[in-house]
């Protein structure tokens, strides 16, 4: 049985899909987004977290079966409330065997995954076929800016996005609005252009940058220096997504 590393399970996660949901945070991420507000999700392994009551370890290694059993305790509760389970991170596709095995065990539960889409095409397809809903992040359309702000090329993401659009699987696009990084009209138009012809796109969610994003960095011995004006408020261009339902979270 596969095991994986998770760093949090959050009940009543109200912004991660329909109904009452539990969100599982898988540890480890291939991207290094300058605005990341979950720095304890970046490294794949458990690590020290300086908490208010002293040091503790963030990240625990769990067997897929044990995690699934824990989540299944609330199967009826989810069903009563149109909800389910959402996997996020970090980047959940970083642990493909573990993720797929947990998904396979969640019979009768509505399943969603939130992903950056930065993974191999085969992994993406494996996950896609196991979930009921994809929360697909898009941070930047421009490859160069993507490299600068996330440390990675976005070509794998764009390729997987095409797979998602073709699949007919219901999905949501989530875009973090970062002041001076991706909130210009031209950048948003480029993102919107990527979504053309996306028939199963349920809606576009714009996530405002949190000024408190840097709060947890010292807890994991990191320094928060995002390289943009973190006091600024991002511009919001909902008009470019007028073909779709749009919501600001």
């Amino acid at each position: 049985m596969a095991s994986g590393t998770i760093f949090s399970i959050e009940e009543f996660a109200i912004n991660d899909g329909p109904g009452i949901r539990t969100t599982v945070f898988l540890k480890g991420c291939p991207l290094r987004c300058a605005w990341c507000h979950n720095p304890e999700g970046l490294l794949p392994a458990p690590q020290v977290f300086h908490g208010i009551y002293g040091d503790r370890i963030t990240g625990r290694i769990v067997e897929a079966g044990d995690l699934a059993a824990e989540l299944l305790r609330n199967r009826d509760f989810f069903a009563m409330n149109g909800g389910g389970v959402t996997f996020t991170g970090g980047e959940p596709t970083m642990q493909p065997r573990f993720l797929c095995e947990v998904l396979d065990r969640l019979e009768g539960v509505h399943k969603a995954v939130e992903t950056s889409g930065w993974c191999a095409p085969g992994v993406y397809a494996d996950v896609l076929e196991r979930v009921d809903l994809v929360l697909q992040d898009i941070k930047l359309a421009s490859p160069e800016a993507h490299r600068r702000w996330t440390g990675q090329d976005n070509s794998p993401i764009l390729r997987n996005l095409e797979t998602l659009k073709r699949s007919g699987k219901p999905f949501v696009i989530r875009i973090p609005l970062i002041p001076g990084v991706n909130d210009s009209l031209s950048e948003m138009e480029s993102v919107a252009a990527l979504l053309r012809g996306a028939l199963a796109l349920r809606r576009v969610e714009l996530l405002r940058y949190h000024k408190t994003a840097g709060a947890k960095y010292p807890r994991v011995d990191l320094h928060y220096d995002p390289g943009f004006d973190r006091e600024a408020s991002p511009a919001v261009h909902t008009e470019v997504f007028s073909d779709f339902e749009t919501i600001i979270l």
Binding site: F12, I14, G19, I20, M80, N81, G83
Partner: peptide, 9 residues
């Protein structure tokens, strides 16, 4: 609505 569901539960 999710809060309403939680209460109903």
């Amino acid at each position: 609505e999710k809060l309403a569901m939680l209460i109903r539960s």
